[in-house]
C-alpha cells in the first residue's frame, strides 16, 4: 500500500490536566475523503488544531507527506500544503470576497515583500481567486464586503479561500454547521467537486447524511481517542459509537 499523505502517531494534547487528545493514531491516504465523527468534546477539532500547528502537541508525531511537522510553526505547515476552514467561520470581515480569497495566494503569502513589485502576478492571483470563487458560485459577489455575506456564502468563501492556497490536504471543520437543508445540499455538490482538486479531505461533521454521502471512510472519536474506523455504515452502527453518542448528546445523531 502507498505511503499515507498524513500519518498521525500517538498524538497527545493536554490542557493543564485535561486530555484533549490521548494518543490518537490516524492515516489519511491519497484520494480519500475521511469523515471524523464523535460527540462534542471528543477531540475532533483539537486534532485539526494540533495537525495545523494551532495547538502545540504535547506528545506523539505528525508526518505530512513524509515530513515531520509536529512542532513546525503554523505558516510553515500551511506552506507545506495543509489548508483548513474553521468551525466558527473566520473570514477577514472587513475585506471584500475577492480580497479574502487573494490573501491565500501563495506567491504573495510566501514572499510578502516581493508582492510589492510583482505586478504580473497580480493578474494571475485574481485569475486564480476567481477560478475558485466561480467554482463555489461566489463569482457574482466578489466585490461584496465579507461581513455582508449570508451564512452559506460565508462558509463557501472560507472553503474557496483555503483552496486558493492550493493545499494537498484540506481540513473542513463542520462545513455544514448552521446551514439550512438547501445550503447543505449545495455544499455536498461543492465538496464533490472540490475533492477532485486536492489529494485528500478530512471532514468533521455532525450531519450524518452529509457525511454518509461524502466520506469514503469514517473515523469515530471519543475522549481524545479513535474508537472505531471503517466504512460509514459499519462505523455508524457500531455499538461503541452508538454508546458514545447516546452517552453524551443524542441530538447529534439526528438528521
Amino acid at each position: 500500500m502507498k505511503q499515507p499523505i498524513l500519518e498521525v502517531r500517538k498524538l497527545q494534547k493536554s490542557f493543564g490536566g485535561l486530555r484533549a487528545l490521548d494518543g490518537i493514531n490516524l492515516d489519511i491516504h491519497e484520494g480519500e475523503v475521511v469523515g471524523l465523527i464523535g460527540p462534542n468534546g471528543a477531540g475532533k477539532t483539537a486534532l485539526l488544531n494540533t495537525v495545523t500547528g494551532f495547538y502545540r502537541a504535547t506528545g506523539g508525531t505528525i508526518l505530512f507527506q513524509n515530513q515531520d511537522i509536529t512542532h513546525r510553526p503554523m505558516h510553515e505547515i500551511g506552506r507545506l500544503g495543509i489548508g483548513r476552514t474553521f468551525q466558527n467561520i473566520r473570514l477577514f470581515r472587513r475585506m471584500t470576497v475577492l480580497e479574502n480569497a487573494l490573501v491565500a495566494f501563495r506567491p504573495f503569502a510566501d514572499h510578502p515583500l516581493r508582492s510589492l513589485i510583482a505586478y504580473r502576478e497580480r493578474r494571475m492571483a485574481i485569475a486564480r481567486a476567481m477560478h475558485w470563487l466561480e467554482l463555489l458560485q461566489l463569482a457574482d459577489k466578489v466585490d461584496r464586503i465579507a461581513s455582508s455575506l449570508s451564512y452559506g456564502d460565508a462558509r463557501r468563501l472560507e472553503i474557496a479561500r483555503a483552496l486558493v492556497g492550493e493545499p494537498s490536504l484540506l481540513l473542513l471543520d463542520e462545513p455544514a454547521a448552521g446551514m439550512n437543508e438547501n445550503e447543505t445540499r449545495r455544499l455536498v455538490d461543492d465538496i464533490a467537486i472540490v475533492r477532485r482538486h486536492v489529494r485528500a479531505i478530512v471532514l468533521i461533521e455532525h450531519d450524518m447524511d452529509l457525511i454518509r454521502s461524502l466520506s469514503d471512510r469514517l473515523v469515530a472519536m471519543d475522549y481524545g481517542r479513535k474508537i472505531v474506523e471503517g466504512a460509514s455504515a459499519e462505523v455508524l452502527n457500531h455499538p461503541e459509537v452508538l454508546k458514545a453518542y447516546l452517552g453524551t448528546d443524542t441530538e447529534e445523531t439526528v438528521s
Binding site: 505558516h75 489548508g83 495566494f105 510578502p112 492571483a125
Partner: peptide, 25 residues
C-alpha cells in the same frame, strides 16, 4: 493598493487565520 497591504490587514484582523494561510505573521 498592494497585496502586501492585504496581507498586513489579514494579520491585523486575525493573525491565526493568516498563519493558517501560509503567512509568516
Amino acid at each position: 493598493f498592494s497585496p502586501l497591504q492585504r496581507i498586513c490587514d489579514a494579520v491585523r484582523e486575525d493573525d491565526r487565520v493568516a498563519s493558517s494561510l501560509a503567512i509568516n505573521v
